[in-house]
Amino acid sequence: MTVTLITGANKGIGFETARQLLARGHTVYVGSRDPERGERAAATLGARFVQLDVTDDASVADALAAIGAEQDRLDVLVNNAGILADEAPSGPAALRAFDVNAVGLVRVTEAALPLLRKSANPAVVTVSSSMGSFWAVTNPERPESGLPLALYAASKAAATMLTIQYAKSQPGIRFNAVEPGPTATDMTAAFGIGRPAAESAAVVVRLATLGPDGPTGTLQDERGVLPF
């Protein structure tokens, strides 16, 4: 049985990723900052729940300790929790964006590493964004070049870079970042665009279910590797 933790999994892409991995036989832990929403999502899915706020060190440590107490390892970590951070740039807004989208990734990954090292086929997937790709935002043929989301783009660039650096420092674990595609979620409701979350979750699931010989240190979308 593959043991999987997904952060921010009480709705949207995280929820649908959990649904699809459960269908593949994974034991899935739904990580959610809000206990009521997380427990409800886990019950709906038939998953397990852990309270997990990626901005709180104690919450992250407690969540991984709870998983460790029930399981002898963690096979897959999906760093999905994130915020759009579309407000006007300011010091507090920047700190919030990076705390959730980048520093939160470090908190969870560092806490998960001891359990991941016990897996025979460990994988970490970070839900990043092509908005964090220098190639995409400077390419006039790409829609990212016309979206002024400074804090979101910068924090997702950091998330992708952290993923690449973890791939280098942890060669026994596959680390990949993913651009899941434009998705209709609470986070993107203001834009009125996007496809169903289940379609984007399938892109995450592909990277979460790679074999031991799968790639590491990449940013990918549904078509394959993206420059970053």
Rank of each mutant, 00 (worst) to 15 (best):
A189F: 06
R223G: 10
G104Q: 10
S128T: 12
S129T: 11
A97V: 14
D75T: 10
L52S: 07
G172C: 07
N101S: 06
V54P: 03
F175W: 10
N10M: 05
I164H: 09
A153Y: 01
D213Y: 02
V50G: 05
G68K: 02
R33L: 12
T4M: 11
A9L: 11
P148Q: 08
A69F: 01
I164N: 01
T218K: 13
P180L: 07
T2V: 12
F49I: 10
D86P: 01
L45T: 12
L74Y: 11
A9W: 13
A111G: 06
E16Y: 13
D62C: 03
A157T: 13
I173F: 03
K168N: 01
V103M: 04
R107T: 11
N79T: 15
S119G: 00
S145L: 00
I6V: 14
D72V: 11
K118E: 15
A123C: 12
S169V: 09
A102Q: 02
S128P: 09
A197P: 03
P180V: 11
Q165E: 14
D213S: 09
T126E: 01
R117F: 12
D57Y: 10
P171E: 06
A153G: 09
R24M: 12
V106I: 15
R24V: 08
S90W: 08
I67S: 05
E39H: 07
L113S: 02
S145K: 00
L116V: 06
D57G: 07
A58M: 05
G132D: 05
T183K: 05
P143Q: 07
V225C: 01
M161W: 09
A154D: 06
A43T: 14
T160N: 14
A136I: 02
I164A: 10
A202G: 04
L149Q: 06
A85V: 13
R142G: 02
G217H: 09
S200I: 08
V50E: 06
V124F: 06
A61W: 03
A177T: 11
A47L: 07
E144P: 06
L116A: 05
L219M: 04
V125D: 04
S145W: 00
D57W: 08
D186A: 14
A153W: 02
A184M: 05
Y166M: 14
R40M: 03
F228A: 13
L226E: 07
A102N: 01
D62T: 15
Q170N: 14
L105M: 12
L95P: 00
G146Q: 09
V108D: 02
T216M: 04
A198P: 02
G12C: 04
L45N: 03
L5Y: 11
V178E: 03
L95T: 15
L45K: 03
W135M: 00
V108P: 00
R96Q: 15
L21I: 14
T216L: 07
N176R: 07
T7H: 08
A159V: 10
A136V: 05
P182V: 15
T209I: 02
A202K: 09
D75A: 05
P196V: 12
G192V: 14
G172I: 04
P122A: 06
K156Y: 04
E199T: 05
F49V: 10
T109S: 08
G192N: 10
P35V: 15
Y29Q: 02
S169E: 07
G211Q: 04
